[in-house]
Design a protein around this nucleic acid. Structure first.
Length: 723
DNA sequence: TACTATTTAATTTTT
DNA sequence: TTAAATAGTA
């Protein structure tokens, strides 16, 4: 067999990984070191060279995008469609198992998947039902608690309240939430994984079947696995399966949602004889960028240890710009972007990264003013839009009457006279009889409701019955179309003023198109409608559709993971913002922030700008910030400071001779103040100068105000009166 | 039921 | 600042 096509483009370490013997392997793949390439070539090598049947392989990723990419690349390597190859996300694969073995899972055959928004609504409703003091109990925290437990593989019955009232309440809520879901045949994201794990754990024959089938388990982004995902993998691997996991401990940035890098270490214990291969040659960035990244990440403890290197040239220095405020920062970035674009570079080759979404606003304004097209990543995705979810809720009810989540969502949308009072009666009945809202509704229309309310409820129920009857046997897209029409949603949104309603109607039309374009995997044994609904829940679709236009890319550092751009800006490198205030107290948190910074830096291929502002308006308040500690961790020889524009602001003492060399003058005297001097500020009142730093336009003083406390002020901006 | 005023809180996000 | 959630009013 000619192995050249699969191996020829690989370097030594990559080739070693791809052709490794059938034993547990841990590949530590640095940023830009060809991680996906190793994974896909390994699969191709096993099938093409080793002659393994595609169905004896399982490949797991975290996102649908990564799964689709992996399948595409494997198929192109093999030169044939590999439909028997199981490639998917953890959730997608878990879902597949649950559908196949629904009898053993305790779920109804047509169980429905709820997203986190649905989950939160359910929790809120539940809490309202119990009449909890919602000033003390925050639904979001309850949701977080429940998901965190599920991520750890724990059900309510496994939890101990430790004598803590707060915790006991949480556990009770977890318990009732789960009962609510079970009653309605609803499965949240974490539940997919947990149930799939329990399915394998508790059914020896099913487990044995899959253990026998999957001889090789390929796992992408291994550092991001949570406890239940890892447990699931271990179970599937058993003693015979060969796990091939690829990850980068330095790029673990999702601890807060359950990911545990520790699995990288645990893996070596759980699979004795594991070999470790490190991919350290980087094919993406210049040497300068890599040196900066290496130096930064050195400051973290508990690493596997890894040093990225490249054959590439040194490249440009990293440019650091200290802006006065966030506007100045945005103007600077836009200026560079304009230059870039005018030099004939594609705008889409440039990305501006920030720590938190709120930072995009100023950037967007500046880009807008400059007339530069841009695209902001993130935001609501297609299947998450309210109107789309409304339509889906109607569809779900036609398939599954007991879906309370959907029932509550559309029972009075558009308004049909089923108000809070009526709903409360139904909810009480449902709770008392441990039944679904649909069942409660049928019970209550004959007994318990006023004539008028009963009529309205009957009207709703017969609408759903009618939808089900009339769409029976239809093509999927006709079915969706029909339900949308009958639901009255279109008329409802038509009445909405402004463009809003218009867009909503367009989205409903697009939902019909999505259904028309939807091709179900015929191997799955569920109805086409259920398959489509599951697809909508598991793949929320694209955020913004106009990705094709050549525009500057704006995104958080988190969403930049896995991407690369010739020109990258890291903005807002200020202590408190990045690292974020809420992470600095905890060493784990700080290290994760540093890894995030590492991810940010390693996105850049050729040119990297880092910017920070000395003053930033946050939550409507101007505040001062020190440059991020991460900046100081980048060796100065790699950095070139971009000089700010010549002084714009009124200098405190124009006569002061500039900067270094003025010999005996103290730093304070150089900028024309003295420590201990009394000053007056327009807003903060009177105070005393405690400290100062910098010179020229960037000179700042620390002032202890009598009423406003201690603040750092930029002299050129603060307009201080010396007294 | 729909609109308006007030209050509150404010990382990161995929499934 | 601002967005969202809640409370109050027509």
């Amino acid at each position: 067999m000619d192995v050249t096509p699969i191996l020829e483009s690989l370097n030594e370490a990559q080739r070693q990984a791809v052709t490794a013997p059938a034993e547990p392997l841990l590949v530590i793949a640095g940023a830009g070191s060809g991680k996906t390439r190793v994974l896909t070539h390994r699969a191709a090598w096993l099938i093409d060279v080793q002659g393994l049947a595609p169905e004896s392989l399982l490949a797991v990723t975290f996102t649908n995008k990564a799964a689709a990419e992996m399948r595409g690349r494997i198929e192109s390597l093999l030169g044939t469609p590999a439909s028997h190859l199981w490639i998917g996300t953890f959730h997608g694969l878990a879902h597949r198992l649950l559908r196949r073995h629904w009898r053993e899972t305790g779920l109804p055959q047509n169980f429905q998947i709820i997203d986190s928004d649905d989950q939160l609504r359910l929790i809120k409703r539940l809490m309202k039902g119990i009449g909890l003091d919602d000033s003390q109990w925050i639904p979001r925290e309850v949701q977080y608690f429940i998901n965190a437990q599920k991520d750890e593989g724990l059900r309510a019955k496994h939890l101990d309240d430790d004598g803590d009232n707060n915790r006991r309440q949480m556990i009770t809520l977890y318990q009732s939430y789960q009962e609510l879901c079970d009653r309605g045949g609803l499965v949240d994201f974490a539940e997919l994984l947990l149930r799939a794990h329990e399915l394998l754990r508790d059914n020896a024959n099913i487990l044995a079947h899959y253990q026998r089938r999957f001889q090789h388990l390929l796992v992408d982004e291994f550092q991001d696995t949570n406890a239940i995902q890892y447990a699931w993998l271990r179970l599937l691997a058993g003693t015979e399966g060969v796990p091939f996991v690829v990850g980068d401990d330095d790029q673990s940035i999702y601890r807060w949602r359950g990911a545990r890098v520790e699995h990288i270490f645990q893996f070596q214990k759980d699979f004795p004889g594991t070999s470790v291969i490190k991919l350290e040659q980087n094919y993406r960035s210049t040497a300068t960028i890599l040196k900066a990244a290496n130096a930064l990440i050195e400051n973290n403890s508990s690493r596997m240890g890894k040093n990225l290197w490249t054959d590439d040239e040194e490249g440009e220095p990293i440019r650091v710009y200290s802006a006065y405020n966030e506007r100045d920062e945005a103007d600077f970035i836009v200026g560079r972007l304009r230059d870039w674009s005018e030099q004939g570079n594609p705008r889409a080759d440039a990305a501006v990264l920030y720590r938190s979404n709120a930072q995009s606003r100023v950037l967007e304004e500046a880009l807008m003013n400059a007339g530069l097209p841009y695209r902001v990543y993130g935001g609501l995705r297609f299947f998450e839009r309210a109107e789309v979810k409304d339509a889906l809720a109607y569809l779900r009810l036609t398939s599954h009457r007991d879906d309370d989540s959907s029932f509550e969502r559309v029972v009075n949308k558009p308004t049909r006279g089923i108000g809070a009072r009526t709903l409360e009666i139904m909810r009480t009945h449902a709770r008392a009889n441990a039944c679904s809202m649909w069942q409660a509704a049928s019970a209550v229309i004959n007994d318990g409701l006023s004539g008028r309310a009963a009529t309205a409820v009957v009207a709703f129920m017969s609408l759903i019955e009618r939808m089900t009857r009339e769409t029976d046997g239809m093509e999927l897209h006709d079915r969706v179309d029909h339900v949308v029409q009958l639901s009255g949603l279109i008329d409802h949104f038509r009445k909405e003023k402004g463009e809003r309603g218009e867009t909503r109607i367009e989205n409903l039309e697009e939902l019909v198109s999505a259904a028309r374009g939807y091709a179900r995997d015929p191997a799955e044994e569920m109805s086409e409608l259920d398959a489509f609904l599951a697809h909508a829940a598991l793949e929320a679709g694209e955020g913004q559709a106009d990705a094709w236009e050549d525009c500057v890319q704006l995104m958080t550092m988190h969403s930049a993971k896995g991407l690369e751009y010739p020109l990258v800006f890291l903005s807002g490198l200020e202590d408190g913002l990045f690292p974020h205030q809420r992470s600095v107290a905890d060493p784990h948190g700080l290290e994760e922030e540093r890894r995030l910074c590492y991810v940010g830096i390693t996105r850049a291929k050729r040119t990297l700008y880092i910017t920070h502002a000395e003053q930033r308006r946050l939550h409507g308040m101007d505040s001062f910030a020190q440059p991020s500690r991460f900046l100081a961790e980048i060796p100065t020889e790699l950095v070139e400071e971009v000089r700010p524009r010549v002084q714009v602001s009124r200098p405190v003492r124009p006569s002061s001779r500039s900067s270094r060399g003025s010999g005996s003058m103290s730093p304070a005297a150089e900028i024309g103040v003295r420590l201990g001097q009394r000053v007056r500020h327009g807003k903060f009142g009177d105070g005393v100068i405690l400290n100062c730093e910098g010179q020229g336009a960037h000179a700042r003083v620390e002032v202890n105000f009598e009423t406003a406390g201690t603040k750092w002020l930029v002299l050129g901006y603060a307009n201080l009166d010396l007294m």
